[in-house]
Amino acid sequence: MNAIFEEIKEAIIDGDEELAVELAEKVVAEKIDPVQAVQLGFIKGIEEVGKSWTNGEAFLPDVMMAADAMKAGMDVLEGVLAAGEGEGSYEDKGKIVLGTVEGDIHDIGKNIVGALLTAAGFKVYDIGIDQKAEDFVAKADEVGAKILAASSLLTTTMKSQKVLVEYLSDQNIRDNYKVIIGGGPTSKKWGDEIGADGWAETADEAVELCKQLLN
């Protein structure tokens, strides 16, 4: 049994998305404990990559490939995990809805943040680019996320971050979520001005911010 967990771990470290999916399907088909597969396979693998990144031994493409492999494999296991199968319970560090705000179609920065958050053990739901305030909230409600992470790469679309915070207030649900913002033209001053719960200049800072907000 341990052999497959080791294989999953190596697949994540190698960023092998196809193999991660194949092994996850094997876990389901052979009724192997999915919680153990996550904890001893997927999480061990992504932790290794995270440590290598911190130590300067891995590079951003490695992290992003590992995150993609983990996401693909975890998607296969989601059904059995949700059904409560397996010994113990799988607890992720928190759920985050991530997206680029309405009017903005940039996604490289957002994708990097998503990869590093995944590597840190968060469950990230990336809703993509050009997303309205309602889209962030709809996804958060669907998956039970507590953090909304809104990216803007243009000065002209920064106002959509403000719109998100205002939308939550207008709907009387502001206290239900933590809103964090980021992106090239944004700043801590802007975050404070619009009433966001936090601002991160870099992807690394976004990870630390999410850890603080969910503690």
Score class of each variant (00 low, 15 high):
Ile96Asn: 13
Gly50Arg: 13
Leu23Glu: 03
Tyr167Gln: 04
Glu85Asn: 04
Asp126Ala: 14
Gly88Cys: 08
Arg174Ser: 10
Met158Ser: 09
Ile194Val: 12
Asp175His: 05
Leu154Cys: 02
Glu85Gly: 03
Gly109Trp: 11
Phe59Cys: 00
Phe122Ala: 07
Ala69Phe: 00
Leu164Phe: 02
Asp14Ser: 13
Arg174Pro: 04
Asp170Val: 04
Gly15Lys: 11
Gln131Thr: 09
Asp135Cys: 00
Val35Cys: 06
Met1Lys: 13
Leu23Pro: 05
Val143Gly: 13
Glu134Gly: 04
Ile32Asn: 10
Phe59Trp: 12
Ala145Arg: 02
Lys146Ala: 09
Lys123Asn: 04
Glu91Cys: 00
Leu209Asp: 09
Met1Asn: 14
Lys44Asp: 06
Gln36Lys: 15
Trp53Ala: 06
Ala11Gln: 01
Leu60Thr: 08
Glu6Leu: 14
Gly56Cys: 14
Gly15Ala: 12
Asp107Lys: 11
Pro34Arg: 10
Val35Asn: 07
Asp135Thr: 02
Lys146Asn: 13
Asp68Ile: 00
Ala58Val: 07
Val28Ala: 08
Gly195Ile: 01
Glu10Met: 11
Ser169Asn: 09
Tyr167Thr: 10
Glu205Lys: 14
Val27Thr: 13
Ala69Arg: 07
Ala11Gly: 01
Gly114Leu: 14
Ala29Pro: 05
Met158Asn: 10
